[in-house]
Every structure is written in structure tokens, then in C-alpha cells.
């Protein structure tokens, strides 16, 4: 298994009066090419989990293994991890510092040992992946760009190492709907090309529509773990925890409440539409039309 957490725990400020368990005995296995969404409240340990996998913090107990190696072992070469794994933080544009966009991206490849030609080629590919023309932006100053463009350059910085694993911490925060859609399309494309995606978000709609597997964290514990459809099936539990539920799943419940035999294992809009087609073929949608209208008026 490429990413394995064995009873990983993390405690903030251990041995002090401010000790606080951020993560408790997390057992987790993630295969290559998965698209994982992590949901939970602020302080549930979502970001801590990402930082553990990224090797930014060391677990107070337990192990984090990537491709069979304990990344916190003393003889583990961190450069290997940096080549394999990228992370996009909330407001990634805050990290820009170079004089030109090209140098900014090349910084991430500084210790890769790649020849200059290959570096240039990768920079070009990464910039094109986020929708830039290499020749147009390469010599611009990243600090002088507009907010949306800065965000794209920062994303390109994470893509330029062509990582096997991409961690995203609330990546769509502060983006307008169009920017959000563009970003998620870039990420989906990466995922289709084989990159493992682990995305933390408080937006259940985004997770329901894009992630295949969802982890729900609550107070540092892994509460639910399964395919998006199954996790959202348990809608009452999610609502009891005051966690968001994706809209298609809510609609499916409304339809059921109205007496329509509608499947409840729905996470994304595509699944919802497919189910609507399915149900209406069986003639399920046509009965009790008044109740159906009632759904939309709510």
C-alpha cells in the first residue's frame, strides 16, 4: 500500500498544560490513484492528518509509511518524499517570492537534480496544465499578478514536480465559482493521470462531486471511511455531527420523503441525474405529481 498510517497519533504541546490530542490512533491505507476527500469540523484534525502525511510534523505515536518506508525513520531521505509529494495549502499564493514565474516554479525543482532542459520542459508543462501560455507568463513577476493568476502559479508550483501524491488543504477557499470549477478540473485531470489526491474541504458538495472515497474526522478520530456514496448514505449521522451534506444527497432524501422510490446512495450530481433517468424510466417520477412540485417549492 503506497500510503499507510499505523495507529498514528499527534499531540500538540505534549507534556504541558496546553496538551491537546489532535489525532488519535489513525489507521488508514490509501492506494495509488485514489481521490480522497476529508471532512470534519475545524479542529477535528483534518489539517494535522495532511501534515502528518506530508512529513511536516512527526507523529507522537504510530507510523506514517509511504511506499513501504517509514518517513520519520532516521535513515529516510526526505528528498525522496519531496519529489513524490506536493501539497497545496489554503491561500497557496502566500508562498510566492521569486522574481519571475519561471524561477518560482523552478524553485520547487531545485533539489531534484534534473538537467536544465528537463526543468524548463516541466515548468512549461505545469504552466500549461493550469491554463497559462508559457511564453506569455514565464518572465512576469509572480508578485505583480492578479489574485486569481497568483493562485494558478502557486498551483503550478505544486504540479511542477509531477508528484505521485497531491495533498490539498481547503484549496477552493476564496475562489469564485469559475475559479473553483477550473481548479477542480485540473485536479481531476491529474487524478485520471494516476496521481493520488487527498483533499481536505468543508464543502460537502465539492467532496461529494469529486472524491471517490471520503474520510470523516471528528475530534481527532476517524469516524467514517468509505466510498463517497456510502458515507453520504448515513445522512442522519452526518447531520447529527453538524457536518455538511452534499446537495444531490439531500435532494434524493426529499424525493424519498415525497414517496418516490429514489435510490439513496447518491453523492454527486452525475449520480443524481443517472438515478433520475433510471427512476423515470420505471415510471417512478410520474406518480403523485403534486408532491413532486412540492419538492421544488421547498
Amino acid at each position: 500500500m503506497p500510503i499507510v498510517l499505523e495507529k498514528a497519533s499527534y499531540t500538540y504541546a505534549p507534556g504541558t498544560p496546553y496538551e491537546a490530542a489532535a489525532l488519535c490512533d489513525i489507521d488508514l491505507q490509501i492506494a495509488d490513484g485514489e481521490f480522497i476527500g476529508i471532512m470534519g469540523h475545524t479542529g477535528s484534525g483534518k489539517s494535522t492528518l495532511l501534515q502528518l502525511i506530508a512529513g511536516l510534523i512527526t507523529p507522537s505515536r504510530g507510523k506514517v509509511m509511504i511506499d513501504g518506508c517509514d518517513i520519520n525513520a532516521r535513515n529516510y531521505n526526505r528528498d525522496v518524499l519531496r519529489k513524490k509529494l506536493s501539497m497545496i495549502f489554503q491561500y497557496p499564493e502566500y508562498q510566492l517570492f521569486e522574481t519571475t514565474v519561471e524561477k518560482e516554479l523552478a524553485f520547487s525543482l531545485k533539489h531534484s537534480g534534473l538537467p536544465g532542459k528537463e526543468v524548463k520542459e516541466r515548468v512549461r508543462r505545469a504552466l500549461e496544465a493550469v491554463g497559462f501560455s508559457y511564453t506569455r507568463v514565464r518572465s512576469l513577476s509572480p508578485l505583480g499578478l492578479s489574485g486569481g493568476e497568483k493562485r494558478k502559479v502557486a498551483i503550478a508550483c505544486a504540479l511542477v514536480t509531477e508528484p505521485k501524491i497531491l495533498l490539498l488543504d481547503e484549496p477552493v477557499a476564496g475562489l469564485d465559482p469559475r475559479g473553483r470549477k477550473e481548479f477542480l478540473e485540473i485536479i481531476t485531470r491529474r487524478n485520471k493521470a494516476g496521481t493520488t489526491i487527498i483533499m481536505v474541504s468543508h464543502d460537502a458538495d465539492v467532496l461529494g462531486n469529486y472524491a471517490q472515497r471520503i474520510l470523516v474526522l471528528n475530534q481527532g478520530k476517524l469516524l467514517l471511511d468509505g466510498p463517497a456514496k456510502r458515507v453520504f448514505t448515513d445522512i442522519e449521522k452526518l447531520e447529527a455531527l453538524k457536518l455538511g451534506v452534499c446537495r444531490p444527497r439531500k435532494l434524493a432524501r426529499r424525493l424519498k420523503e415525497c414517496g418516490i422510490p429514489f435510490p439513496q446512495d447518491i453523492a454527486g450530481y452525475d449520480e443524481f441525474i443517472a438515478a433520475v433517468v433510471e427512476v423515470s424510466k420505471k415510471g417512478g417520477m410520474s406518480h403523485e405529481p403534486d408532491t413532486g412540485r412540492h419538492v421544488y417549492s421547498r
Binding site: 495549502f89 502566500y94 531545485k110
Partner: peptide, 12 residues
């Protein structure tokens, strides 16, 4: 946060 972001990018 910035220190962590740059560490992931390979800064030393």
C-alpha cells in the same frame, strides 16, 4: 504556515 509550505516545496 509559510515555513511549512516552503518546506514541502523543498526549501532548506
Amino acid at each position: 504556515m509559510i515555513r511549512k509550505a516552503q518546506t514541502v516545496r523543498g526549501a532548506r
